[in-house]
Amino acid sequence: MPVTELGASRHRQTRLLWGGYALALMLAPLLWDSSLGQSLLSQIGIAIIVCLSYNLLLGQGGLVSFGHAVYSGMGAYLAMHTLNRVSGGWPLPVSLIPLAGGLGSVLLALLLGWVSTRRAGTAFAMITFGVGELIWASALVLPGFFGGEGGLSG
């Protein structure tokens, strides 16, 4: 087989494989339609997004981050605060709550990323570690926002 045909065949196999994954992801909510199944699929999707973002940072940029959970955690806290406000009377559709949490987390990432990406290598890793520790310490100091040791409820 010539090299070009081999490359085309491999490209076709790769596209077929990724198409199968996409089809499985589209059919998964139809197969697991219980409340537990939907919740589990949501959590799996969130974990996939966090892992992909870390893969971009480490795999493409070569930057080791020890504070990566800060951004996903802050998005969850902001989404929970938004949900509590919506149940208290804010005129916002419930389907937009994850968007509110995501946008708030993006704003935090822009601020902290602007500070931490000025350095690379070990300095970047230590800055992200420090940011993670700062947010962890803030969780105990600011119980009004983080809910203290018990967390938030809604």
Rank of each mutant, 00 (worst) to 15 (best):
M1L: 12
V3H: 14
T4R: 15
T4M: 07
E5H: 08
G7N: 10
G7T: 06
A8W: 05
S9M: 11
R10N: 05
R10H: 09
H11D: 03
H11M: 13
R12N: 04
L17F: 12
L17R: 11
L17I: 09
Y21N: 03
Y21Q: 03
A22T: 07
A22K: 04
L23P: 02
A24M: 15
L25G: 08
L27Y: 07
L27H: 09
A28K: 04
P29E: 08
L31G: 14
L31R: 15
L36E: 10
L36H: 07
G37S: 10
G37R: 11
L40V: 15
L40H: 03
S42A: 11
Q43H: 13
I46F: 08
I46S: 14
I46H: 13
I48F: 14
L52H: 07
S53R: 07
Y54V: 10
Y54N: 11
N55F: 03
L58H: 12
G59N: 06
G61W: 05
G61S: 12
L63S: 10
V64S: 01
V64A: 12
V64Q: 07
S65E: 03
H68V: 02
V70Y: 00
Y71K: 04
G73T: 02
M74I: 07
A76N: 02
Y77I: 07
L78C: 05
L78T: 05
M80G: 02
M80E: 05
H81F: 01
H81I: 01
T82Y: 00
L83T: 13
L83V: 08
N84A: 15
S87V: 08
S87Q: 15
G88T: 04
G88A: 15
G89A: 08
G89T: 06
G89C: 05
W90C: 03
W90G: 08
W90V: 11
W90I: 06
P93L: 06
I97D: 00
I97P: 00
I97C: 01
I97W: 00
I97E: 00
P98A: 00
A100Q: 02
G101I: 01
L103T: 09
G104C: 03
V106P: 00
L107I: 13
L107E: 09
L108W: 13
A109T: 06
L110G: 10
L110F: 09
G113C: 05
W114F: 13
W114C: 11
V115T: 12
V115C: 12
T117P: 00
R119V: 11
A120R: 15
G121E: 04
G121Q: 07
T122I: 14
I127N: 07
T128Y: 02
G130C: 08
G132C: 08
L134M: 15
L134T: 15
I135E: 05
A137D: 10
A137R: 14
V141R: 15
P143K: 00
P143S: 04
G144Y: 05
F145Q: 03
F146P: 01
G148V: 04
G148W: 02
G148T: 06
E149C: 01
E149L: 11
E149N: 14
G151L: 03
G151S: 06
L152R: 08
L152P: 00
L152Y: 04
L152S: 01
G154L: 13
G154A: 15
G154I: 05
